[in-house]
Amino acid sequence: MTTAPRLVAHQTAARRVAAGLALVLTLGLMAGLDQVADRQYDNALMAQADEVPTQVVVITAKRLSA
């Protein structure tokens, strides 16, 4: 009878370790993807900055009173 609680406690500890490892791996993967995305975004901004400037025209007007 004493083996069952020990087995359950061992399984619980193993699950905690597995959950901790999964968390660390997930956060590490997300951080790596974040760095790749930042690098690609920076490269896209630099490529866009090298293009010919675009002229923007802003038109403002007042409404006529009715």
Rank of each mutant, 00 (worst) to 15 (best):
M1S: 13
M1H: 08
T3K: 11
T3I: 09
T3E: 15
T3D: 13
T3A: 10
A4Q: 07
A4Y: 06
A4E: 06
P5V: 05
P5R: 12
P5M: 03
L7Q: 14
L7P: 00
L7G: 00
V8H: 11
A9I: 02
A9W: 02
A9S: 14
Q11G: 07
Q11V: 05
Q11T: 07
T12F: 10
T12A: 13
A13K: 10
A13Q: 06
A13D: 12
A14F: 01
A14R: 15
R15L: 07
R16Y: 03
R16H: 04
R16N: 01
R16T: 10
V17D: 10
V17W: 15
A19D: 10
A19I: 08
G20W: 07
G20M: 05
G20F: 08
G20P: 00
G20H: 08
L21A: 11
L21V: 06
L23S: 13
L23G: 12
L25S: 04
L25Q: 15
L25E: 10
L25V: 09
L25I: 03
T26N: 11
T26I: 06
T26Y: 00
L27N: 09
L27I: 14
G28R: 04
L29I: 09
L29V: 10
L29H: 08
M30G: 03
M30D: 11
M30E: 05
M30N: 11
A31Y: 01
A31Q: 08
A31C: 13
A31R: 03
G32H: 05
L33E: 03
L33T: 05
D34N: 11
D34Q: 11
D34Y: 02
D34R: 09
D34M: 05
A37L: 15
A37M: 15
A37D: 15
A37N: 14
D38R: 15
D38S: 13
D38C: 05
R39H: 06
Y41Q: 07
Y41I: 04
D42E: 11
D42Y: 03
D42Q: 11
N43C: 00
N43G: 02
A44N: 04
A44E: 10
A44R: 01
M46L: 08
M46Y: 10
A47V: 03
A47D: 14
Q48D: 05
Q48E: 12
Q48I: 03
Q48Y: 13
A49L: 04
A49F: 02
D50H: 03
E51S: 11
E51I: 02
E51P: 00
E51G: 00
E51M: 01
E51D: 09
E51R: 11
V52P: 00
P53E: 10
P53K: 01
P53Y: 08
T54S: 12
Q55K: 04
Q55F: 03
Q55A: 14
V56F: 04
V56T: 12
V58E: 15
V58T: 13
T60I: 09
A61C: 04
K62Y: 06
L64W: 01
S65W: 10
S65E: 07
A66Y: 05
A66N: 12
A66S: 10
